[in-house]
């Protein structure tokens, strides 16, 4: 009896989670359905839930010819992946340092770091456009990556230092005694133990660079356009082609969803560092 109660409770909890996911999913499902429609089908009321025919025409259109979205898609991936890797390389040691060697200045540095995050795009974009156009970095993925690193490294450092605080210091001290230096401890003990948190941060850095529009719009030319720039072209002073826009949106979600699903086995499965701590 008790077993059954527990089971029902679990199922209820799962159902609630399912509902939360549906809140996110339903509008996107509508967007998927819209992506198969013709323009005129998207504009009639009451709307038809299913398109007259499931034609892949809109998607085919996206991959056609010189304006195919394959290149922007790859640019987006490239920029987001490289940004994520660089951000982690810079943020992990910095966060470890902030978490372990706490000095008076740590707090100042942390505040300064987060202050950088508050700079609105206009404060960063215009001066960077001026520099980039002088040194020929406009229309260059490297230039974009530099800005993405700048805007993401701050939040990564902040959160990682908090998560590193949670990693048991006893295990580390034992490792130190065994002759591992700080770098060794960081690599062999702290990073594996805080892997879940690092992955979550990595996912967010990836998503933010994946989504970023304002810098990309002004610093990319045709050869380096990222996917958000393509999406932004649907915001014009003419009729919005919702069927094409939603098709692009769906394509924007797919790679990130796949990557998240791939790494999500690592998030929250196995041992969390909290469990080790106890």
């Amino acid at each position: 009896m008790k077993f059954r109660m527990k089971w029902i409770k679990k199922l209820l909890v799962w159902m609630v989670c399912f509902c939360f996911s549906m809140m996110s999913l339903l509008p996107i499902l509508w967007s998927v359905l819209t992506s198969f429609k013709k323009y005129i089908e998207t504009q009639i009321f009451p709307p038809k839930i299913l398109p007259d025919q499931f034609s892949l025409h809109n998607y085919a259109e996206l991959f056609k010819g010189s304006s195919s979205i394959v290149k922007p898609l790859l640019s987006s991936l490239e920029v987001a992946v490289i940004t994520t890797v660089i951000v982690l390389l810079i943020a992990i040691p910095a966060a470890y340092s902030m978490s372990r060697f706490r000095t008076k200045r740590t707090h100042d540095i942390q505040m300064w770091v987060i202050g950088m995050r508050m700079a609105p795009a206009v404060a960063v974009l215009v001066p960077y456009y001026i520099i980039y156009s002088r040194i020929g970095l406009v229309n260059n993925k490297g230039g974009l990556i530099v800005l993405y690193v700048l805007s993401n490294v701050t939040f990564a450092v902040w959160l990682l230092s908090v998560f590193f605080d949670g990693v048991s210091k006893e295990i580390e001290e034992a490792a130190m005694v065994d002759g591992l230096g700080h770098w060794g401890t960081l690599l062999r003990i702290v990073i594996p133990l805080a892997m879940n948190s690092i992955l979550i941060i990595a996912a967010f850095v990836f998503i933010f660079s994946w989504n970023e529009l304002i810098y990309a719009m002004n610093l990319c030319g045709q050869q380096t356009q990222t996917l958000p720039v393509i999406l932004s072209t649907y915001a014009s002073d003419v009729s919005v082609q919702y069927q094409m826009m939603t098709a692009t949106q769906v394509i924007q979600i797919i790679p990130v969803a796949l990557i998240t699903l791939l790494i999500q086995k690592n998030i929250l499965t196995g041992l969390s560092f909290g469990a080790v701590k106890g």
Partner: peptide, 11 residues
């Protein structure tokens, strides 16, 4: 549940 995060805010 995280899908909305993956789309460009303008879009």
């Amino acid at each position: 549940y995280m899908f909305p995060l993956m789309i460009t805010p303008l879009s």
